[in-house]
């Protein structure tokens, strides 16, 4: 009969093997490929002398660094605005929606389950040159020619991504708001705190871990984006992720692509490690 202790290897073994093979080993391989000196599509078998040539290229190419900076700023802007817009939504669900909270939450999440690509497509349809917005504006005589700033620009990418992330960002904030003990707010009221003071001194600080989690849940996928910029941004709206994707696709330069990916990963991990000192992930599980 298998005892408690005997069961442990059976529990730990499969996930450990799985993660080692499909998560840890691949990340080590990125490091390995990024240290190869040659360019192009390289075969895995041949030996090589580790070199930092690729990282030199990343750091020495102003266009790469500029795109990295632009992408980080875009992701920062998207994450900050999406979190700020998601906060009142989460607050409404936590404190105002009362008995219908589950229904209102469901209504918020249903669009998120719809195809992301086609929702973007629908926005293109609405904002494009022959789209509803331009048709309405020109029918009203407000504009002579269709506005094309609504599409194929960095601004369009940022607006689209903010829009896409709001429901998702509201989830960790909602979780942290729901954990707030009512008695703490009552205690604040008993001590003479008005509604705004209660919010600023009790509710807001207690929900900050959720807000921070929301920020990162938006920032990380956004900083590595290449799908939305391709579809919405056009050639002028590409992001750092497009570089990586391109070097593993048409441009075919795996070592350089691996170095670009490593740079992004290292910067992301540093950001998260700094934030994790403030948040316990388990407390904000979606």
């Amino acid at each position: 009969m298998l005892g408690r202790r005997g069961t442990l290897p059976v529990l730990v073994g499969p996930p450990l093997v799985w993660l080692a093979l499909l998560f840890v080993a691949p990340l080590i391989l990125i490091v390995a490929f990024s240290l190869r000196p040659e360019a192009g599509v390289v075969s895995a078998g041949e030996p090589w002398n580790p070199s930092l040539v690729q990282y030199g290229k990343v750091v020495g190419t102003p266009a790469f660094l500029r795109l990295l900076g632009v992408s980080a700023l875009m992701a920062l802007g998207v994450a900050v605005v999406a979190t700020m817009l998601a906060y009142p939504v989460a607050y409404f669900l936590a404190f105002r929606a009362r008995a219908r909270a589950t229904l209102f939450l469901a209504l918020l999440l249903v669009p998120f389950a719809a195809s992301y690509l086609l929702r973007i497509m629908a926005w293109k349809l609405l904002l494009g040159p022959a789209g509803a917005v331009n048709s309405l504006l020109s029918a009203a005589g407000l504009i002579g020619e269709p506005l094309d700033l609504l599409l194929y620009s960095r601004g369009a990418v940022v607006i689209t991504l903010i829009y896409v992330w709001i429901p998702f960002a509201s989830l960790p904030i909602l979780a942290s708001l729901q954990r707030i003990e009512r008695s703490q707010l009552e205690a604040a009221a008993d001590l003479g705190a008005g509604p705004w003071t209660r919010f600023l001194r009790v509710t807001l600080p207690l929900s900050l871990p959720g807000a921070l989690a929301a920020f990162f849940m938006v920032f990380i996928p956004t900083v590595g984006e290449y799908v939305t910029p391709t579809l919405i941004g056009g050639t002028g709206g590409i992001m750092y992720g497009n570089l990586i994707q391109d070097f593993f696709g048409r441009a075919g330069n795996w070592p350089l692509g691996a170095a670009l990916a490593m740079v992004m990963l290292i910067l992301t991990v540093i950001g998260v490690l700094v934030a994790l000192r403030a948040v316990d992930l388990r407390r904000v599980a979606p």
Binding site: F23, V24, A261, L265
Partner: peptide
């Protein structure tokens, strides 16, 4: 172990895609 299981959350998909792609290439 817990950290490792949750860690994929902080890896951008483009990086994860490249990583697993390189694993497939290496193992053929």
């Amino acid at each position: 172990l817990l950290g490792l299981a949750v860690l994929p959350l902080i890896v951008p998909f483009a990086v994860m895609g490249v990583a697993i792609f390189l694993l497939l290439v290496t193992l053929g």
